[in-house]
Amino acid sequence: MKRANDLLLKAVIKVAVLIILTFSINLFFSGHHHPGGGFIGGLGVSAALILLFLTYDIETVTENLPFDFKIMGAIGVLIAVGTGMGSFLFNAPFLSQTYGYFHLPVFGETELATALLFDLGVALAVIGSSVTIILSISEDE
């Protein structure tokens, strides 16, 4: 079969993936005080990855992003459970959180919360599981 030339799709996707990744990082970090968080940030990243898989093919994308998405999901669940268990070290109930204000060189006075680590684990688990689901249901017979 003659291969169609999808130059327009490739040119648009190269810009759109950058915008979607930036927006999902913004959603991930704004989850503490505004709408957003780890789950929807991870879904944004996996939407960008699925756009790349649609435009190019599995071989090209996995050459340039050499991650095993199953292992990524497992690491995410491990981080999320680990931050939950970490509160036992300070004699606190499971999944309790705290925050503090620190002086960072570039950002100035910044609020750092331990809920961000839990959100990072949730985001990695969401990226790993959704990309694994999409890749396995798109496989041939």
Partner: peptide
């Protein structure tokens, strides 16, 4: 649109 045009949504090998 991809599934209509090509019949396959995500391609496996680079063509």
């Amino acid at each position: 649109a991809r599934s209509l045009e090509r019949g396959v949504v995500i391609e496996r090998k680079r063509v």
